[in-house]
């Protein structure tokens, strides 16, 4: 499958002198679910702002759908890469849900009928249609998050990038959000999340990119999260499921299960092998 995002040797320095990105490279395939993992201050958010053309590379290249991001393509990329900010209060600013979701489409100069259709579709996708006339300050945190996602969906991007999507969400809202993300995935939208939640990355992502100090440490599938050297170097921790099976080397499991699903399968397989130990506590 083709790469929809390619980042090559990206450097970025903030005005106060902080070097946030120091030669970062990565590539993201079409239709994949990517988790960008890294500790606080690794450069995750700075990287995300580059993917949407908000920051332009100081050195290096960012290519989206084959086109390099330059001052000329910076407007175009905003309709291709939707960026959902961590705090929905930063993103949802209008006085009604409807107005906020229509903000992007209106900026794209679409006709009123197109805007209406897109806003309706986007609100349906996040199950917020009945709140369309509500003011954002009357919504719960999880609902505001869904409105923020609708605001990006209404621009019909091919790639959606979410910064720390599960932050501050209650379990129910997390579940809701995962549902929304898997529906988007089925619609062939590429989804990129930046997070330090290793459990989420292990459960959800089919590709993991680990960054630290503005550089890529590793790129690969979720089994990267079972690599002790990498996990230590990146100041992360093992996913809970991995941690449990790491402490049971006598089971001789390889590769180590990373998700609840994989763990259940492994345990069932073990039980089938040793029926006499079934009552073992």
């Amino acid at each position: 499958m083709a790469n929809v995002i390619e980042v090559e040797d990206l450097h970025f320095r903030y005005r106060d002198g902080t070097e946030a990105l120091k030669g970062l490279s990565l590539s993201i395939q079409e239709g994949s679910r990517v988790a960008i993992l890294g500790p606080n201050g690794a450069g995750k958010s700075t990287l995300l702002l580059h993917l949407n053309g908000l920051y332009l590379p100081a050195r290096g290249k960012v290519r989206v759908l084959g086109r390099e991001i330059t001052p000329q393509t910076e407007k175009w990329v905003k309709s291709k890469v939707g960026l959902v900010f961590q705090d929905p209060d930063d993103q949802v600013f209008s006085s009604s849900v409807w107005e906020d979701v229509s903000f992007g489409p209106l900026n794209m100069n679409l006709s009123p009928e197109q805007v209406k259709a897109r806003v309706e579709n986007a609100l349906r996708a996040v199950q917020m249609e009945e709140y369309k006339n509500k003011a954002p300050y009357h919504l719960s945190y999880g609902q505001k998050k869904r409105v923020a996602i609708a605001g990006v969906l209404a621009m019909e991007p091919e790639i959606i990038v979410l910064d720390e999507p599960m932050g501050y969400l209650d379990p129910r809202s997390k579940e809701n959000l995962l549902d929304i993300l898997s529906r988007l995935h089925r619609r062939k939208i590429t989804i990129v999340i930046a997070t330090h939640d290793v459990d989420l990355a292990a459960e959800w992502a089919d590709r993991v990119i680990v960054i630290k100090n503005g550089r890529t440490l590793a790129e690969g599938d979720a089994s990267l999260l079972t690599d002790e050297r990498l996990v230590r170097e990146a100041d992360l921790r093992f996913p809970v499921v991995v941690e449990i099976f790491r402490r049971l080397p006598e089971l001789n499991l390889f590769p180590l299960p990373k998700t609840v699903e994989e763990a259940v399968r492994a345990i069932k397989a073990l039980q089938a092998k040793e029926p006499d130990q079934r009552c073992l506590n």
């Binding site: 908000l54 905003k78 939707g82 960026l83 705090d87 930063d90 600013f93 992007g104 209106l106 900026n107």
Partner: peptide, 21 residues
């Protein structure tokens, strides 16, 4: 700081000069 983040979030959704609607 929040003001700046809001502004970026608006830019991310293509804040410009939409034609007078």
């Amino acid at each position: 700081e929040r003001g700046e983040r809001i502004y970026y979030a608006m830019l991310a959704r293509g804040l410009g000069n939409p034609s007078a609607k």
